[in-house]
Amino acid sequence: MALISLQTVFIAFFGIAAIGFGIWVFRTSSMMRSALALLFSQTALGAMFLAMQAEFLGVLQIMMMATEMSIMAIFMVMFMMDPGGLGAMEMSHQKRLSILAGVAGALATAGIALFTQWGVVVTSAPAAAEQTRALGTELLGRSMLIFETAGVTILTAMIAATAVALPTLQRKRNA
């Protein structure tokens, strides 16, 4: 057994951090803590991407999630009856089933990961600058249509979400 590399240590550390924060999301009854725990979970994942030498994706993940989860937080506080978690409200149902499903899902995926022949693991990754360049070429070359589709889908979703969320005319008149 060779010495465990620094990369392995970092991957394990950030992975455990991501899982830990992920569990914390559902164990606290303060909505703000819940949303920010999810943020830290995602940030730990971003750091894990960095440890896996996917620099662009890691930084992107860290950047996107900060805003995304903060917006999540304000919606949590808006829509929860007890956002501070002071009333110790019960916010979950079918606990046993959910735990079973969660554990089964995790075990199944972990089992697949364990028993698949993954082939040769590549030890070295391209340099970060090269990666950024190649990803850009990929986005505007071979995968351009897919990327454009993603863009159009975002636009559609934005319009749809706004349309759904706008108050109806009736409601506006009453207000």
């Binding site: 920010l36 930084v59 860290i62 900060a66 805003t67 970060a128 950024t132």
Partner: peptide
């Protein structure tokens, strides 16, 4: 001197909000 420096500035500034 990160290869994604200009993006990293954004990422770090996002945490001011947090």
């Amino acid at each position: 001197n990160l290869a994604t420096g200009a993006l990293f500035v954004n990422a770090a500034l996002a945490y001011v909000l947090v």
